[in-house]
Structures are given as structure tokens and as C-alpha cells.
Design a protein around this nucleic acid. Structure first.
Length: 356
DNA sequence: TATCCGTGGGA
DNA sequence: TTCCCAAGGAT
């Protein structure tokens, strides 16, 4: 470590073989992103805000999270307020953000923190990791950012940065062990939270998957991949599998300006979310059995929607009825508020039905 | 370890 | 249009 500094002082043209955390922190102080859940000037942010933002940011872009983060803080200013919230309301507020298990675990976690920890989040990564919805990454991130623990934070950005810095040839996810060790060695005792966020900002703004901006990177001289011009080869990832197509039919049931909706079972796809009555979704287009007898109209356009591991094509059937179908469900006024309470695939179907 | 779990935006 | 993939976790 020390020798790298000395070499650098003796011969500035000599590429520094080691990335210096101080260089990255200096870059972060000047170029770090300005985000709603982030406090500037070394102030310790509210652990509730850090947790909420980290859960929302799992596999989700900053731009998508911003309005949801603001809405949740407005509706639930404290973790106790969230713990006391109605489950259905929380799911409807999460609608559109995806990965709905996060919302279910969000509530579970808020209730554990409120009831078991007196409303105070535990302050170590190991204790945080025991909470619902908090895994390796999120526990380390909260511990570092909110509680100054020098935990090794590794997300997708950091995997990319590290795999390039050290030309890690092992494909993901096997490379995670190696990457974690590198991050652990780099993480400073001072400002570990800023260091983690700086790494993520570097990955998000400069060390991007394609066309990284190495020319203006503070760690350019330390990057093994850049030294030989093969940045974009890293990280090495397994090849993706093709998405199968599944088919189904959803039923839009109308009465007096209201639509009949169900709540999906807690587990599985779109678990706990408001939805249209639906058949199962299978590889073969079903011969649908309508949930009740009525004059069904089949809409000319089908809904296409791409999930993480399959593509869905939904036929939409519409009918006006006099009484509710023999299912557990609820009538909801047909308005924009209803649309915003639905997960995106159901929102697409509802829109088609409402504007037919 | 592999699979399941959403969505929208950018190249 | 198509492909990629973004502050991952649970099982």
C-alpha cells in the first residue's frame, strides 16, 4: 500500500498499480450524484430512509425509485407508521415498481423493527441480514451508509468496477467471492458508507457496462482492464436463456361503472397484488372457462408483457354483469386511481378494457 | 447452485 | 426492434 504511494511520488508517469480509496472519495465529493435519500456534508442519514431506498433500489433504476420513495415517505414518515399500514394499501402504492415480494417483506421488516427493536434498526450488517428482504448487499449497504460500519458492499455496479480493476476472469456469480475479498481489502475504516456509494456512482456514471468513460476516471491508472483496452469484456457473465412464451385469458367484469378485481395469493408471481380474474398462464393457449355466465366480448388486441423469465400474451374478455361472480374479490371504481393500483401487466389489460 | 421474481429506459 | 440490464433476495 505504502510503496505504491512512494512509487507514485518518485515517478508520476508510473501507473499506480493500486486503486486508492482517497482518490475515489475525492471524486465522489465533487461528482457524486445528488439523490433524495442521500445527505451531503458527512451527516449521518436516517436509517429508515436508507433502508427504504435500498429495498426500492434492488434491481431497480434510480429514476423509477424516486417518485415511489417520495410517496412512501409522505404516507409513512416513520418505520412505525409503515408498520401500522394496511397491507393492501402498501401493495397498491408499490404497484408498478415490480418484484412485489419486496413490498411484502418491507411490511414484515417494518413490523419486526417496530415490535422487536422498538422502532430502531439494528446497527450491524449481521443483525440487519436477519431481517426480511435484507440480504448480503442490503445489510452491508445499510450498515455502512447509516451506521458507519466498514462492511464490504457489493452490488452490480461494484462487481463491474472490481472485475475490471483486477481483470477477474471468473464468470459471475462464482466471481462474487473473489470480488467481495477485493472490496473488503479496499474499504476504508473512515467513510465506508461514502466509499460504497462512490463505488456505485462510479459504476453508474463512468464505469458503465458499455462505452465506459475511462478517460475521466480517477482509477484509470489502477485499472488492469483499461491498461490493455478490454474494459467491456468484464464482468464475465453466463449466457442468457431464451424466454418461453405463455398464454392466458383475463376477464374484465363490469357493473355500474365498477370493475370486479381479485387479490392474488401471497406467494408467487404478482403475489398479494390486485388483479383481474385470470386463467393460469401456460405454454399452450388455454380454452378459457369464463368465471360466470354473461355475454362475453373478446377484445381484438391482446396484451403482451415481458417478465423476467417468460413472455406473456393475454387475451382480454369483457362482460357487463348484474351480480358478482362466485369468487372472492372486490368492486372498484373504474378510474385512474384503480389503474395506478394495478401491477403493470394488469394495468395494460385494464386500460384496454376501459378504453374499448 | 439454479430458478423464480417486474419493469422501463437506453443503446 | 431487439437486447441489455438496474443499489438482489428467497428458496
Amino acid at each position: 500500500m505504502q510503496s505504491a504511494h512512494i512509487n507514485h511520488l518518485i515517478d508520476p508517469s508510473c501507473a499506480d498499480p493500486h486503486p486508492q480509496p482517497a482518490d475515489l472519495l475525492a471524486w465522489y465529493d465533487q461528482h457524486g450524484r445528488d439523490l433524495p435519500w442521500r445527505l451531503k456534508g458527512g451527516r449521518r442519514p436516517d436509517p429508515y430512509h436508507v433502508w427504504l431506498s435500498e429495498i426500492m433500489l434492488q434491481q431497480t433504476t434510480v429514476a423509477a425509485v424516486k417518485p415511489y420513495f417520495a410517496a412512501f415517505l409522505e404516507a409513512f414518515p416513520t418505520v412505525q407508521a409503515l408498520a401500522a399500514a394496511d397491507d393492501g394499501l402498501v401493495m397498491e402504492m408499490w404497484a408498478g415498481l415490480g418484484y412485489y415480494a419486496r413490498a411484502r417483506n418491507l411490511l414484515k421488516c417494518a413490523r419486526v423493527v417496530t415490535e422487536t427493536y422498538g422502532g430502531q434498526f439494528p446497527q450491524t450488517a449481521s443483525a440487519l441480514k436477519e431481517l426480511p428482504g435484507i440480504g448480503d448487499y442490503t445489510s452491508a449497504a445499510i450498515a455502512a451508509i447509516a451506521f458507519n460500519e466498514p462492511a464490504a458492499v457489493v452490488d452490480g455496479n461494484i462487481e463491474r468496477v472490481i472485475s475490471r480493476l483486477y481483470t477477474i476472469e471468473t464468470p459471475l456469480p462464482a466471481a462474487k467471492v473473489e470480488i467481495k475479498a477485493k472490496v473488503d481489502a479496499l474499504t476504508p475504516q473512515d467513510r465506508p458508507g461514502d466509499f460504497a456509494q462512490a463505488m456505485m456512482d462510479l459504476g453508474a456514471t463512468l464505469c458503465t457496462p458499455k462505452a465506459p468513460k475511462c478517460l475521466i476516471c480517477c482509477w484509470r491508472e489502477a485499472c488492469a482492464a483499461h491498461a490493455i483496452g478490454i474494459e467491456e469484456r468484464f464482468p464475465i457473465k453466463p449466457q442468457k436463456k431464451p424466454k418461453p412464451v405463455r398464454y392466458g385469458t383475463v376477464f374484465w367484469i363490469e357493473r355500474n361503472g365498477q370493475a370486479f378485481l381479485i387479490r392474488r395469493p401471497e406467494r408467487g408471481l404478482l403475489g398479494g397484488m390486485l388483479a383481474l380474474v385470470s386463467t393460469d398462464w401456460d405454454a399452450e393457449a388455454p380454452v378459457p372457462a369464463a368465471p360466470c355466465s354473461a355475454e362475453w366480448q373478446v377484445l381484438p388486441n391482446e396484451v403482451k408483457h415481458v417478465f423476467t423469465h417468460f413472455e406473456l400474451r393475454l387475451s382480454v374478455w369483457v362482460a357487463r354483469v348484474d351480480k358478482a361472480p362466485p369468487l372472492q374479490g372486490e368492486w372498484r371504481k373504474m378510474d385512474t386511481q384503480l389503474l395506478s393500483a394495478l401491477p403493470t401487466v394488469m394495468k395494460k389489460a385494464a386500460k384496454l378494457a376501459m378504453t374499448r
